[in-house]
Design a protein around this nucleic acid. Structure first.
Lengths: 138, 138
DNA sequence: TCTTGAACCTCTAGTTACTAGAGACGTTAG
DNA sequence: CTAACGTCTCTAGTAACTAGAGGTTCAAGA
């Protein structure tokens, strides 16, 4: 049996976050000692690892809840899991595309200003005030 | 003079958000009608446009506050504006790099699963349970 | 001038995924 | 047995809004 601190050390998930996952229903309520402290089994540790990995990949708590549900029902179709992963991939790609557009604009804005002039002539400020100077939509 | 609804229509910023910006000190408190409704000048409209553009580029409220402060003091050096823009650019680039690593993993995970199998054999689920299958750090 | 309907007001609470802190209690090594 | 550290619950805070309740004001048409 593992204490909450041990789980935290092994997975890199902070203690309050573990308790938060429990409250959100991602982790089942573990056994308690006579003094009311949580004691986890290997299964609890594994599940927390699963959650951590999914969170690192950007899955929402809601998505993870659905994935765990599937994990607990091995006979179900994995169509849902595939849909969740694909949707997450689309999401990540959309975010990359948007950030790349922002990068273009920020490079333009930042390179026109060497930081040595005065605010009244600053291209950073001018550029923010006038959207029409932008090259891409955002 | 413009009503808050007009400002909203012209800038694309929702009405509650405009009030929120006012509360955060990004927008000065506008004049009011006898019946307590906000009435904005052209300067107010321009400032909201500035804020909107900066938010679209991902600047935080805190950064925008600093940029506005510079805008209001044309004699100050623009070193701060340059630093804020550069830092924002670094931030965007770091986010892109991380998302690209996630994309790699998600492609790997999603393409191994056609959604037609059963949950017990699902690569999405296996992969999330076992971090060692990953190709990159995240 | 009156009416009506859209626009506006303030205030509270909810969102996501945690994080921080207070104050009390439990566990364990020496 | 005691000191020191781990853990407990609870509340509140974070960023940047969004939603809704319940009430007031404005502007345009009759």
């Amino acid at each position: 049996m593992f204490s909450i601190g041990t789980l935290s050390d092994r997975t890199g998930v902070k203690i309050p976050t573990i308790r938060y996952y429990e409250e959100m229903g991602l982790l089942p309520e573990p056994e308690r000692t006579a003094g009311n402290q949580r004691r986890y089994t290997q299964a609890g540790l594994d599940r927390l690892g699963f959650i951590k990995h999914a969170r690192d990949l950007g899955f929402t708590i809601e998505s993870i809840r659905a994935l765990i549900d599937l994990n607990d029902h091995p006979d179900h179709s994995c169509a849902t899991a595939n849909a969740i992963a694909t949707s997450q991939l689309d999401d990540v790609r959309a975010k990359i595309a948007r950030l790349q557009r922002l990068e273009t604009e920020l490079v333009r804005i930042a390179t026109h200003c060497d930081g040595k002039g005065r605010a009244s002539d600053c291209y950073v400020l001018t550029s923010l005030a006038d959207h029409s100077l932008c090259e891409t939509a955002h």
